[in-house]
């Protein structure tokens, strides 16, 4: 287990550390390192979802601008750097490409009193969970990994996956639910 850490802690995972440096010090070297790592991946994500190369680069700029401007809202206890950047990329694409609003839950929206989320054991739990999660995704049976990737990369709701692949809806649901059960285990292990 990692100790409680700040941005000077050498044991802290890299990308999380870089994001905190951007948040705290407006560190442009750290931002460049984040850009070099994530921009080509954000571009690949947008390309998979149908953007051409120049539209994908426009979206990369949008996402990385948001990363710079909103870095102070990043909380490494709640999300790894790649998860946080993924949610920004997903939402920017919905705004720009689909021209829809993304209804999001904000921290002060919770309707139940005293129903706060359990506090993570330590600051970088999210990044550690991502390691376990990566292993679980890598070991999914191919048909489960396939429906999962289609959901994230093809902008298809599960009913559309069923129609396009000629797989019965019940089978798509079963595969997704089996995959979700395995994914949940990756989170249970950290507790």
């Amino acid at each position: 287990m990692l100790p409680k850490a700040d941005s000077n802690d050498p044991t802290m995972p890299d990308h999380e550390q870089l994001l905190l440096a951007v948040a705290r010090n407006r560190d442009s070297t750290a931002f460049r390192a984040l850009f070099d790592h994530f921009a080509p991946r954000i571009k690949a994500y947008m390309r998979r979802l149908g953007a051409d190369s120049s539209a994908a680069e426009e979206l990369v700029q949008d996402v990385m601008m948001a990363v710079w401007l909103r870095a102070d809202r990043f909380d490494p206890a709640l999300a790894s750097a790649s998860t946080w950047i993924y949610t920004i990329a997903r939402n920017r694409r919905i705004d720009r490409v689909r021209q829809e609003r993304r209804p999001e839950l904000q921290p002060d929206d919770l309707m139940s009193e005293g129903g706060e989320e359990p506090t993570p054991d330590h600051q970088f739990e999210a990044a550690e969970t991502a390691f376990r999660l990566r292993a679980v995704i890598g070991n999914l049976p191919p048909e489960q990994a396939d429906v999962l990737r289609l959901a994230y990369y093809e902008d298809k709701v599960h009913a559309e996956i069923s129609a396009e692949r000629g797989i019965p809806l019940g089978t798509v649901k079963t595969r997704l639910r089996l995959a979700l059960v395995r994914l949940r285990r990756a989170f249970g292990e950290g507790a």
């Binding site: 991946r41 994500y45 999300a79 993924y86 919770l110 991502a130 995704i137 990756a186 989170f187």
Partner: peptide, 29 residues
């Protein structure tokens, strides 16, 4: 807004999105 369990599940599924994003073969910009 009402459901801690579904909030936790969505956070997990977003973490899954994060892993999938990190593992995409990069395309040079």
């Amino acid at each position: 807004a009402y459901c801690p369990d579904c909030r936790a599940q969505v956070a997990e599924l977003e973490a899954c999105g994060g892993v999938l994003l990190a593992d995409l073969p990069p395309e040079p910009v």
